[in-house]
Amino acid sequence: MPTRRGFIAAVAGLALAKPSLAETPALIIYDDELRNGWQNWSWAKVDLSVPAGGAKPIKVQGEPWSALALHRDAFIPAGYTKLTFSINGGALGGQSLMIKAMVDGKPVDSNYVIQPKAKTWTQVEVPLKELIAEGKAIDGIAWQGQATAYNPYYITRIQFE
């Protein structure tokens, strides 16, 4: 049986414990379909819910500077620290994609670039601080191609965590 002093110490320890980020449920943007008020505002060729095995990812292909852009009513991502998604570079891979948060409908310059691998699903975690989005009211996320046209890639399980 714990002593009174041990019990008080245990209770005090609970009071000082920091809340876990796991208490904030993930905000799902896309998982086989757009969710939670997110909409397709892309300026690239985008096909939603393309059957691929047991999933239905988004297929994206575009001209120079085109983008997969997903939009919703603005929100402050309090409690979230990263944007996560699964991406597949398609048959060729190597697309150069800049990931940007959107604030007031405009992309925030972040210089965060990824290059998906060919025929391989990769889980990507982008810290919100890298998107210069911490504490800002975000109303969209964009995966923007660079100065050349790009071959199709596939993306799914997009969410804030």
Rank of each mutant, 00 (worst) to 15 (best):
P2K: 14
T3S: 15
T3P: 02
R4Q: 08
R5P: 00
R5H: 01
A10V: 06
A12L: 13
A12V: 12
A15Y: 10
L16Y: 00
A17L: 15
K18L: 12
P19L: 14
S20Q: 06
E23C: 02
E23Y: 08
P25T: 04
P25V: 02
A26I: 04
L27Y: 10
L27K: 06
Y30F: 02
D31E: 13
D32H: 09
L34R: 02
N36E: 14
Q39L: 14
N40S: 10
N40W: 09
W41P: 02
W43P: 01
V46R: 06
S49L: 04
V50Q: 11
V50L: 11
P51G: 09
A52S: 15
G53D: 13
G54Q: 11
G54D: 15
G54N: 13
G54K: 13
A55F: 15
A55V: 15
K56T: 13
I58Y: 06
V60W: 09
V60P: 05
P64V: 06
S66E: 14
S66Q: 13
S66V: 01
A67I: 11
A67C: 13
L70T: 04
H71V: 05
H71K: 11
F75P: 01
I76E: 12
Y80E: 03
K82S: 14
L83I: 09
T84N: 13
T84Y: 08
S86P: 00
I87H: 04
N88T: 02
N88P: 02
A91K: 14
L92F: 12
G93M: 05
G94L: 12
Q95R: 03
S96M: 07
S96H: 12
L97K: 00
M98Y: 05
M102P: 02
D104V: 02
D104N: 05
K106C: 01
P107D: 12
S110Q: 09
S110I: 03
N111H: 08
I114R: 03
I114Y: 06
Q115R: 14
Q115F: 14
Q115S: 15
K117C: 04
K119S: 15
V124M: 09
V124Y: 05
V124F: 05
V126L: 06
P127Q: 11
K129R: 13
K129L: 10
E130N: 12
E130C: 03
L131R: 02
E134W: 03
G135M: 08
A137N: 08
D139Q: 00
D139G: 00
G140M: 05
I141G: 01
A142R: 10
W143A: 07
W143N: 06
Q144I: 11
Q146G: 06
T148L: 13
T148F: 09
A149T: 08
N151S: 10
P152Y: 12
Y153Q: 09
Y154A: 04
F160P: 03
E161T: 14
